[in-house]
Amino acid sequence: MLALLRRDKFALAAAVFLVVVVLAALVGPPLLGGIGIDMDLMARNAPPFEPDRGFWHILGSDALGRPILARIIIAARPTLLIAAAAVLLSMVVGVLLGLIAGYKGGIVGDVIMRLTDIVMSFPSLLLALVVLYIFGPAITNVIIVLAITRVPVYLRTTRAEVLEIRSRMFVVAAEVTGASVFRTVSRHILPMVVPTIATLMTIEFAFVMLAEASLSFLGLGVQAPDFTWGVMVAEGRSYLATAWWLSFWPGVFIALVTMSLNLLSNWLRIATDPVQRWRLEREVASDE
């Protein structure tokens, strides 16, 4: 897979950037200490690229004189954790229900699909806004709401895959030889669904990040003292005319991570598809 990844320069650059962001989110906050939290009123709304103020102020300072670069690194952890938790939760629930609806079918499958249709009948962002307005904008509530709105995507995708796979010969052979439902699904059907789900998770991670940023921008996402990139964008909207960098730089990082995830998902779709993967393998073989 690494050899295939090296063949796609854009996907490789996206993967390297994402690894750097994840490492910064993991090790950055403990190493920074209070750099991104301590106020310096002498540096209020200091513009970017002023070397006299030091390295951490290279992207400018916010309304309380805190360096934007340090705050972006600190905010990377909650931003990625919220997106990862929501994606994993929605994936587990959606894939499980999709396997049941696709393999079991019948009344159970119909009930699951009708409930899915009800959830999908509401715009996901509008549903999240209503729920967070009622229950309050806590981090846990944000994760649960974002997960619920994305469950139908995994459910419908998994069900469609299962309906196509269950009629294949190797699945029929497993059923004829007396394999249990659990063994048939876990050993023969689920591995065939995993590549599609992995690609979908990459795309959904980007979507959930944007959704969390939208909720935070509207004031119903993460609340102080916690902050994410979306919160930083929201905090800077009052200064767009005088200090554009407060919202610009966290918005740039949201866009870069989202674009990198989309590039990586496109490569992953090709690399896991036997119909298209041979092209990448041929290019690798020709280089060798």
Results as ranks from 00 to 15, higher is better:
V153F: 14
A173D: 10
V108T: 07
M232C: 08
I165Y: 08
T149Y: 02
A213V: 01
P152V: 00
F205Y: 11
V257I: 10
R166C: 09
A128R: 04
L32D: 12
D8A: 11
A43N: 11
L190H: 02
D8I: 10
A206N: 02
T228P: 02
E175D: 11
P137L: 07
A138S: 14
V162Y: 05
L97H: 01
V252M: 03
G219N: 02
S216D: 05
F227M: 06
L190D: 03
V275G: 09
M39N: 10
F205Q: 03
V208G: 01
I58F: 12
R183E: 12
F170M: 09
V222K: 06
L264W: 14
L218Y: 03
I144V: 15
M113A: 12
P78C: 15
R156D: 04
A128P: 12
T116I: 00
V172D: 15
L155P: 00
A128V: 12
L12T: 07
L96M: 15
T258S: 15
V172P: 04
S90M: 14
S61G: 09
A76L: 11
F135A: 09
M1A: 14
G219F: 00
L256M: 14
A147F: 07
V111Y: 12
D273N: 13
M259K: 06
A206Q: 05
R159C: 09
A173Q: 13
I73P: 06
P51M: 09
S247F: 15
A255R: 02
K104E: 05
P137S: 07
L127K: 01
A243E: 07
T149I: 02
D273G: 13
V172T: 13
L220R: 06
G230H: 09
T184G: 03
L41Q: 03
V22L: 12
L23Q: 05
M91S: 12
F135I: 04
P29W: 09
A243R: 06
A138R: 12
V19Y: 03
V252R: 00
L256K: 14
I100E: 01
L240R: 01
V27E: 03
L163D: 01
T202I: 12
S260C: 04
D40C: 12
A43T: 11
A241R: 15
N45K: 09
Q223K: 08
W56P: 00
W278N: 14
F217N: 01
L32A: 10
F17C: 07
L5D: 00
G219Q: 01
F248A: 11
R159G: 02
V111N: 04
V151S: 01
A234D: 00
L23G: 06
T242N: 08
V111W: 11
F207E: 04
L129Q: 06
N262M: 11
V111E: 06
R156S: 10
E204G: 10
V142L: 13
F253A: 09
T272L: 13
A25T: 11
L127E: 03
L69N: 08
L163N: 08
L132Y: 04
F10V: 15
P250W: 06
L125E: 09
L115A: 00
T116M: 00
L126S: 04
I58N: 05
A234E: 00
A85T: 09
I118T: 13
F182M: 08
G105D: 04
I203C: 08
G236E: 10
R187K: 13
L23P: 05
L96P: 01
I254T: 02
F55D: 02
K104S: 04
I118H: 06
